[in-house]
Design a protein around this nucleic acid. Structure first.
Lengths: 191, 191
DNA sequence: CCTAAAGACTAATTTCATTAGTTTTCAAGA
DNA sequence: TCTTGAAAACTAATGAAATTAGTCTTTAGG
């Protein structure tokens, strides 16, 4: 009905993501974001309820992008479960390295109000669980999946937080860790 | 010299830790902390350079407590490497559950200025690496250690961030994951 | 006693998020 | 064409927090 919008929700989220990746979340002020969009801070409130809601939006999009990356990986990797899980692990890690700030925000948001809807996570991880079941058996597939996600996520976070600074090839350490876990699963969980 | 101090650095850190655990970091205002200590906010600046430095102090102490817990565990567990690493893993997880807010802060502090000195981490983790070497061999001990810490840390963090909400026994899933990883290591890294 | 400096206080200042109230633009109906 | 109303933005104000500046108070040591 009136007044042409000078921005929109997707643009706001995308811009916030960009600023976060460039300067860190702590530096993200609504005024800077608005400025980047060519509007004033209060105008943002037409689109988001408050700053927490804005961050939750960013977090949600980031997680969707992560799982889109999963799909990419699956589309171009061998058909056996082992290869696929290894490929997904590396894809996950690469994603995190490509946008470390947003990745960390998405999965370790301090305030519950900034976290993504847990149901989203569940939905997106189901296909992976199916693959995992081929290795661990149905019975242990949820537990086994949790272990793998934990391993990937924890390793990557330690990297991103500069807590693995003693040198050595981190990519091959990661690869060894994932393969070891999967190898162990086949002997333990299948038994 | 003069004027009897109404507080001191250790007390400030301990009190901050308590408030963080009770209300979350986002809620920690210097005014509240000061109030809890019976002083006014500006007086805190006698003891810490700024809020980031305060948080870094909290983070450092939390990590020291975590590794003290490691020592506790090692003192009362069997002598074989496998048992010790499993015990440490569970001890780590229990520590995180006992003080989730401080744990998350300590290991995922957003701002680098709030993070603990990386050298501290290295120093404290060396004994664990020695144990790990018995399983993985010297050559792979650093990589293997990184995988285990990642696994533990990631699993716990997913739990704390409410991202493992689909039911099932998380303790046994954790146990399975750790044992699988260690089992896989013996076959892969030792080979 | 005096005094100097440590330690605490009050009173700004600054930076943000958020709210209130107002103005502008333009689509649609008279 | 003119009016109008509502969406979208703006300016100005409020309030919370961290931090800084400047001042007072206590007491150990001379």
């Amino acid at each position: 009905m009136a007044y042409p919008a000078q921005t929109d929700y997707p643009t706001i989220i995308r811009t916030a993501q960009r600023l976060i990746e460039r300067d860190g979340v702590e530096q993200l002020a609504l005024a800077s974001l608005a400025n980047e969009l060519g509007i004033k801070a209060p105008s943002l409130y037409r689109y988001v309820a408050n700053k927490n809601a804005l961050l939750k939006g960013v977090v949600t999009v980031t997680i969707q992008q992560l799982f889109a990356a999963y799909d990419q990986v699956l589309a171009t990797s061998p058909n056996d479960a082992q290869s696929q899980l290894v490929a997904i692990s590396h894809g996950h890690r690469q994603f995190a390295h490509a946008q470390p700030k947003n990745y960390a925000l998405a999965l370790t948001a301090a305030s519950p109000e900034q976290r993504a809807d847990p149901a989203l996570l569940v939905e997106m991880v189901l296909p992976i669980q199916a693959i995992m079941a081929q290795i661990s058996g149905q019975e242990h597939s949820l537990a086994a999946l949790r272990g793998l996600l934990g391993l990937i996520h924890g390793f990557v976070l330690l990297e991103l937080n500069q807590q693995l600074q003693r040198g050595g090839d981190l990519s091959s350490a990661f690869d060894l860790a994932v393969r070891s876990y999967l190898a162990g699963l086949t002997t333990l969980a299948a038994a």
